[in-house]
Every structure is written in structure tokens, then in C-alpha cells.
Amino acid sequence: MRTLLSIFALICLMSCQQNISESDLSKLNGYWEIKEVVFPDGSTKEYKANTTIDFIETANLKGIRKKVQPTLKGTYFANDDAESFTIRQKGESYEIYYKNDYSEWSELLTSLSQHQFSVVNKEGVTYHYKRYEPININE
């Protein structure tokens, strides 16, 4: 039953997704924080505050995704760890493929704008991100 619900949720998400063009993919560049996760059963988890955010940089259908920690001065702490990815067109959609020494996975890009994006993984879990706005206590 759970598998059936997951497949149904994935089909619904795919039919509701916006059209994303290759030129839109540059909107992924920048700092992002997770806003909400929607599980296949419909339950959600909201994130009000994040101690780490994602830095994404793309060019020519390739990119990196790196976890960084924002500071109160508007700067970021980061280490050298980054996940490399490739973006492939899949029909009218784009899928982000990650591969490292331990695992490989993909996420279907379901929406993308200058201020938000969403992806859904193979398990039917949807991740909603919003553009990170730094907090600067020096202002």
C-alpha cells in the first residue's frame, strides 16, 4: 500500500510540475535553506531555522552542492567537502544526479524560480528550498 501511495504521489507531483528550461537552471546558483519536507504519506516537516545551508553552483549542466554554516556577520564557514552532480534532461523535466564513492542518487527538479525550488527523490519525498537571506547583526 505504501508503495502504491508513493507512486501515486510521484505521478501527481510530476503532472503538477512547472516547465523548467535549461536557461532557468542558472537560478540554482547561490545559497539555499530547506523550508519544508513533504513525505509520501502527506505528512510534512517544516524548518523554521537552519544551522547549515546549501551552496549550489552550476555551469554547463554540472555543479557542486556544499553545506555551509552562516555566521551572524553575514559570512559562511565551509569545509572542502562538496557533492558533485550532473543535470540531465528527462523528457520535459530535469533530474539532478549525484554520485560519490559511497552512493548515487537522483532528484527530480519539480519547480524553480529565483526565490525557491523543489525536488522529489525516488522515494517520493519532496524537499522545498527557499533562497537564503543572510542575517547581519552589524547593520
Rank of each mutant, 00 (worst) to 15 (best):
S118A: 15
K62G: 07
K67S: 11
K45I: 00
K27M: 09
M14C: 08
I53R: 05
I53H: 04
F8K: 13
S111K: 08
A82W: 00
L112S: 03
T51M: 10
K45V: 04
Q17K: 14
N19Y: 04
T52M: 00
Q116W: 10
S23K: 14
Y47C: 01
S21Q: 11
K27F: 05
T71E: 06
P40A: 06
S43W: 03
N50R: 11
R65P: 02
K27E: 01
T51K: 05
F117R: 03
C16I: 08
I11R: 06
L112K: 02
E33I: 00
S84Q: 11
K27I: 00
N29D: 11
I96S: 03
G30F: 02
I7C: 13
T58D: 02
T52G: 04
F39Y: 15
E123M: 10
E22F: 10
S26Q: 13
E22C: 10
E92K: 15
Y94G: 01
I56S: 01
K45W: 05
S26E: 13
S118H: 02
E107T: 02
D101F: 11
V68G: 00
C12D: 06
G42W: 08
E46F: 12
V68P: 02
S93F: 09
V38W: 04
I87H: 02
H115T: 15
S103M: 07
H115A: 11
L109A: 02
F39R: 01
K99I: 05
M14N: 10
K35S: 12
L28Q: 00
G74Q: 09
C16E: 15
Q69F: 08
Y98G: 03
I64F: 01
S118W: 05
V120C: 10
I7W: 11
G74D: 02
K62W: 04
E107Q: 08
I34M: 15
K67N: 13
Q17Y: 02
K66Y: 02
E36F: 01
V68F: 04
Q18D: 09
D24M: 04
E92H: 13
W105D: 10
N121S: 09
T51H: 08
S26L: 14
T75E: 12
Y76N: 03
S84V: 12
Q17W: 06
S26T: 15
T75Q: 13
G124L: 07
I64L: 07
L72R: 10
I7D: 13
R65A: 07
L108T: 14
S93Y: 05
K73N: 09
L61D: 00
K35F: 09
Y98L: 06
R88C: 03
N79A: 04
S84W: 10
S21I: 07
S21M: 08
Y102F: 12
A82H: 03
S6N: 08
L28P: 07
Y31M: 11
E46G: 15
F55W: 09
E83A: 12
Y47E: 01
Q18T: 13
N100V: 10
G30N: 00
T44H: 06
S21T: 15
S23D: 14
K122A: 12
F55D: 07
Y31N: 11
L72G: 12
V38I: 15
I96D: 01
I53S: 08
S15E: 12
L10P: 02
Q18P: 04
S15G: 03
